[in-house]
Amino acid sequence: MPSIKATYERLSTSQKFMRRFALVIKLIVAVIMVIFAIFPVLWIFSASLDPTSQLGSQSLIPRNAGLVNFQKLLNDPLMPFWRWIWNSVKISGITTILSVSITTMAAYAFSRLRFAGRINILKAIMLIQVFPSLLALVAIYLMVQQTGKIVPWLGLETHAGLIMVYLGGSMGINIWLMKGFLDTIPRAIDEAAMIDGATNWQTFTRLLLPLLRPILVVVGILAFIGTYGDFVLARILLSKAENYTLMVGLALFTDNQFAQNWGQFSAGALIGALPVVIVYLLLQDQIAGGLTVGAVKE
C-alpha cells in the first residue's frame, strides 16, 4: 500500500494546488456542518444555565445565567443523578458486549455457512422490525414480572432482567449490517485457513474477528447509544429511584403537564451525553483505523 507521502510526491504542482483548493472547500463544508450539528445543542446548553427553567429563550445567554440547575441536579437527595449515570453505563456496557457477540456470531453463520431457513430467518428479522409493538410493553412487563416470581434476580427492579429484555433486540437489523460487511471479506481467506486444518471457530476468532474490528465498533456504538437512550422499557420495569437509568431519571423533569423543569433536564442531558462522547472518542480510531481487507494477501 503506497503511503500518502509517496502519493504526494508523485503529484505535480498544479495537482498540489488543486488538492489544497479542494481541502479548503472541504473545510468550509465541514465547518458549516458542524454549525448545523452543534447549534441546537448550544440552546440546550443555554437552557441548562437559565434559572427560570425555560426552553429556548430568546438570547443564547439567558438572564441571570448560572449553574443553579447543575447544583440542584447534583445535590438532590431524592434524585441520585450519578447513580443513574452509573446504572446506565453499566447496563448499556453489558448489553453492548453481549449483544455484539450474539450479533457477530449469528452474522458469521449467515455469511459463511449454508443451511436451510437461512434466507427466511434473515427475512423474518427484517419483518419483525416492521411490527408496531404497541403492546409489547404489556407483554414484556408480564413476562419479567412472572419470571421474577421464580428467579428473583431476573425480575422487576433488576438490571439483569432489563438487560435480558434488551438482548431480545440483538438479533436485529445489525445482523444485516454485519453480514453485509462479512460478505465483502473474501472467502478465500477462511478457506485457506480451513484447508490448513482450522475449525470454523478458530477461523472466526483468529482470522475474521480482527478484520471485523471497524464494524464491530460501529455496531457496538449503535448498541450502546440505543440502550443508553432507551427509557420506554426501563421506566416500566424499574420503579425505585436508585435503580433508574439516566433517561428514566431525566424524564421525571419533563413529564409534568405544565411545569416542565427544562433547566435541570438540559443540564442532565448534557452531562449524560458525556459517556457516549467519551466512548466514541476512545473508539473512533478503530472505525477508520486504516485497517483494510486489501492488506491481507490472497
Binding site: 447534583l74 445535590n75 437527595p77 431524592l78 441520585p80 450519578w82 447513580r83 449515570i85 452509573w86 453505563v89 453499566k90 456496557g93 458486549i97 474490528r213 464491530l216 465498533v217 457496538g220 436508585e242 459517556p275 467519551i278 466512548v279 476512545l282 473508539l283 478503530q286
Partner: peptide, 27 residues
C-alpha cells in the same frame, strides 16, 4: 477494544462513590 472502556467504568464508579459520599444521605 472493550478493555479500553474499563478505565471509564472505574472512573465513573469512583466518581459516583465519591459523590454519594458527599451528598446528603438519602437514608
Amino acid at each position: 477494544m472493550f478493555r479500553k472502556l474499563y478505565p471509564i467504568f472505574s472512573l465513573l464508579a469512583v466518581a459516583a462513590m465519591l459523590l454519594s459520599a458527599c451528598s446528603p444521605s438519602t437514608a
